[in-house]
């Protein structure tokens, strides 16, 4: 009886020891696991913070690039204009008019904004026109007119090599902003929708602003005269759809003109 009892106790003792070893190991494992998890959480936090910082940096850099691009493009446009003694505000107004036309025509916000940035470059080719022609007071003779008209081709040649979407767009604008809906424009006598919408829009925006501004060789036209001319040129010089958009949203154009007046 005593022996039997002793044997059981021995077994239980062994079990107790085994249990202790096992539980100790389990405790050690759980502690280790907790530590790994805590370290991992901390690491994850650091990683995510760093990721966000880097992302913010990239975003800022991207904005910097975009802003620089905008400024360069705008300055290029202003250079083109300054060569022909026009004001910086002309460029700004053409930009705004172009965006309004683009949006109402149905281009999306991104493309319209791009056109706003690209349209000021329409006359960049003028930098290559000799001063004697460019700033001649009074009317051009036939030879001078020919030289002057090359500015569309020249502008296109300057910009066409670029792979940047904005400069590509500007190349199109420079090339086609003197084409006319009726096919009597230059340099390629394109007709109707053969003329890219960017060219058609900038043509209208540029002419509207040029007519309303005074130049060395001419007085500013009053609105009545401009509107009459636009109606006559609907489907001749200009895309009829764009002329309709212009008159349907006239107050928007006039508001831009008012906010960007030339200071003389």
């Amino acid at each position: 009886m005593t022996n039997h009892e002793n044997k059981l106790i021995t077994e239980i003792e062994a079990l107790k020891l085994d249990f202790e070893t096992t539980t100790n190991k389990l405790i050690k494992d759980v502690r280790r696991q907790d530590k790994i998890m805590a370290r991992s959480d901390k690491r994850q936090q650091l990683e995510y913070d760093e990721l966000q910082n880097k992302l913010e940096e990239v975003k800022n850099l991207q904005k910097e690039i975009e802003d620089t691009q905008k400024e360069v493009v705008f300055t290029m446009g202003a250079i083109g204009e300054s060569r022909s003694k026009e004001t910086g505000n002309h460029v700004k107004r053409v930009a705004q008019y172009s965006k309004i036309l683009a949006l109402h025509y149905g281009l999306d916000e991104r493309e319209s904004e791009m056109l706003k940035q690209a349209s000021p470059m329409h006359d960049i080719g003028k930098v290559a026109i000799p001063d004697s022609v460019l700033n001649k007071p009074g009317r051009f003779n036939e030879e001078e007119r020919k030289v002057m008209d090359t500015h569309a081709q020249l502008g296109y040649d300057m910009l066409k090599m670029s792979d940047r979407p904005l400069l590509k767009m500007a190349a199109t604008v420079a090339y086609e902003h003197h084409e006319k809906w009726n096919g009597k424009g230059y340099p390629n006598k394109l007709k109707g929708e053969e003329i890219h919408i960017y060219g058609r829009i900038t043509a209208l925006a540029d002419v509207f602003d040029a007519l309303g501004s005074s130049r060395v060789y001419k007085e500013a036209w009053d609105d009545e005269r401009i509107f009459k001319m636009f109606k006559e040129e609907r489907g001749e010089h200009f895309d009829p759809t764009l002329i309709d958009i212009f008159f349907d949203n006239l107050e928007e154009f006039l508001a831009v003109r008012d906010s960007l007046k030339d200071i003389n």
């Binding site: 280790r32 696991q33 790994i36 998890m37 370290r39 991992s40």
Partner: peptide, 10 residues
């Protein structure tokens, strides 16, 4: 290293 690599090293 990821957390299972930590475990692996242990």
């Amino acid at each position: 290293f990821n957390s299972s690599s930590s475990k692996l090293f242990f």
